[in-house]
């Protein structure tokens, strides 16, 4: 009995030995930053020195229209881009799964391909493609779709569309793969039965495919939402520092600029990052709750 206890303690100690290195990294690069941010958030930087201002940074935020606009831009991208992309990915996955037999693998590969590019590469490519005298405008003019070039990068409205286009190009194929895996788990007999009942393919898509894929759709929505809340690379490179005139400024980019670019106000930047964490947390919580409810049913 005694011997067994010693052995169990040995195994337990070995368990701690296994997780120890990861815990050390976690403490240094996750726990410590989180805890020390509690200090930064209450202080105001002026040059090299800083002073305690309590909740002053949050008061300042209430008057900072650039930050509020930046958050509004995040919401705008979220509300338009995420549903658009999920719908496209779902549609493409369904068409691939049911519509064709030949070239299925090749088409799937092609549509997934943008997911191998980094956000920096996507931003660089789209910034070149979407210049006023660039490829897309030239093609559209030649096809007589437009008469004057669109200011993809210079017009406040079109710049937002540009960000959405770039994100959709990068992520649709990626999300489609999730849905393809989800579709594989649906019994084909359900579709056969619907076919017998005379339900059209479009009807089957909305009454069978979408309801059965809700868990995967929610998962996709959770990850896309958190990605959109952190949007940084695209507005910084593609539309160049959130331009034109802050039209594509996002929360993450504004925080970065306050801390590292414009003025080194680490306190204010930390306070703003708290708001982003809070909002992301609320979104994740709500979406997870929805997911949990589905599972429970």
């Amino acid at each position: 009995m005694e011997k067994r206890g010693i052995y169990q303690r040995y195994l337990n100690r070995f368990g701690w030995f296994c997780v120890a290195p990861a815990m050390a990294f976690f403490t240094l690069f996750m726990l410590y930053p989180i805890l020390s941010s509690l200090y930064y958030v209450t202080r105001r930087w002026k040059g090299m020195s800083n002073t305690f201002i309590g909740l002053g940074n949050f008061v300042r935020m209430a008057h900072d229209t650039i930050f509020q606009d930046a958050l509004a831009h995040n919401f705008f991208f979220l509300v338009i881009q995420v549903p658009l992309m999920i719908f496209l990915a779902l549609m493409l996955a369904t068409l691939l799964n049911q519509g064709i037999k030949r070239f299925r693998g090749a088409v799937r590969l092609a549509i997934f391909l943008p997911a191998v590019t980094s956000l920096v590469v996507v931003s660089v490519l789209f910034r070149v493609l979407l210049q006023t005298n660039g490829l897309l405008n030239n093609i559209m003019i030649q096809a007589h779709l437009i008469t004057t070039p669109i200011g993809w990068l210079t017009d406040a409205f079109w710049a937002k569309i540009t960000i959405i286009l770039a994100m959709t190009w990068r992520w649709t194929g990626y999300n489609m793969v999730f849905f393809l895996v989800g579709l594989q788990s649906i019994d084909t007999e359900i579709y056969e039965a619907a076919e017998v009942d005379g339900a059209s393919k479009v009807r089957q898509f909305f009454t069978i495919t979408i309801p059965l894929l809700v868990p995967v759709i929610l998962f996709s929505a959770v990850t896309s939402t958190s990605g959109t809340m952190q949007l940084f690379d695209e507005p910084n490179i593609l539309t160049w520092q959130g331009g034109p005139a802050n039209a594509t400024m996002t929360a993450a980019l504004y925080i970065y600029r306050q801390a590292f670019f414009v003025n080194a106000d680490f306190g204010y930047a930390t306070a703003m990052s708290y708001v982003v964490v809070l909002i992301s947390g609320i979104f994740a919580f709500v979406q997870m709750r929805l997911l949990g409810e589905r599972r429970a049913k």
Binding site: I34, M229, Y256, S273, V276
Partner: peptide
């Protein structure tokens, strides 16, 4: 759920 932007300042 913590976004990277919230960690980079203390780091």
């Amino acid at each position: 759920i913590i976004p990277q932007i919230a960690l980079v300042i203390p780091m």
